[in-house]
């Protein structure tokens, strides 16, 4: 099977004042098409750092990463920007919607940024929102939505440009158990339905059964089984 995301011996070292902190230490990971991977670990263990590097938001100190078989190590900032736009969907811890855009416009913006046709985008956005059960919220602003609804909008936004891979950083952190499960279920469904890949960082033990694989962040590495 084809690897959507491949990290090869990635290290990340932060210099904090005069001492260095190795947050990621030769971390390797392969995520295949149709796979939904969960990453768990204590706070401060480097989960967000790992996710940022996977999403080309942060460059690693060492190692190489590939998306859809393409090496990103040597790309320029502008090119990375474009790759993020076209190949990567993000769902952030707090939904991070743009406060002055309606739900529909949040999605259309993605197409506008990619220079695509607005009419087509609107059709597509409506379809996505419908599937995520948001059709009655299309013209609402984020401030009038519940936490669960916002997170679902964020997921819809992440799928808008048909990315190869979706990265989610604690998407259920601000939701109650029931809503949280619903959101993760939706992520899982989308991955299976579209043959994409997804990596989700989470603290929520109750949703792990919805994922294909659970990895633990330990000493800067990802391991299959908790020691």
């Amino acid at each position: 099977m084809k690897a959507k995301l491949y990290l090869e011996k990635i290290s990340k070292v932060f210099t904090d004042g005069d001492h260095e902190v190795t947050v990621l230490d030769e971390l390797s990971l392969k995520v295949n098409e149709g796979e939904f991977v969960a990453v768990v670990g204590p706070s401060g263990s480097g989960k967000s750092t790992f996710l940022s590097i996977s999403g080309a938001l942060l460059s690693p100190s060492k190692g190489r990463m590939f998306i859809n078989g393409k090496d990103l190590s040597k790309e320029s900032d502008d090119k990375l920007n474009e790759i993020r736009l076209k190949n990567i969907g993000f769902v952030f811890q707090s939904s991070n919607l743009i406060p002055y855009l309606t739900v529909l416009d949040q999605l259309i913006l993605i197409s506008v940024l990619a220079g695509k046709d607005k009419q087509e985008a609107e059709v597509k956005a409506n379809k996505l929102l419908d599937r995520l059960g948001l059709s009655h919220r299309v013209h609402h602003y984020p401030e009038t939505l519940s936490g669960g609804e916002r997170q679902r909008v964020a997921i819809a936004r992440a799928w808008m440009n048909d990315p190869e891979i979706l990265l989610a950083d604690e998407p259920t952190a601000s939701l109650d158990a029931e809503r949280g499960r619903e959101v993760v279920q939706m992520l899982s469904d989308e991955v299976k339905l579209r043959g994409k890949a997804a990596v989700m960082v989470t603290h929520d033990q109750r949703v792990l059964d919805l994922c294909d694989r659970v990895l633990y962040m330990e000493d800067g590495k990802l391991v299959e089984n908790k020691r």
Binding site: N81, F92, I110
Partner: peptide, 9 residues
């Protein structure tokens, strides 16, 4: 930051 993360130049 969010806008840049989702691909705005």
């Amino acid at each position: 930051g969010v806008l840049k993360a989702i691909g705005a130049k």
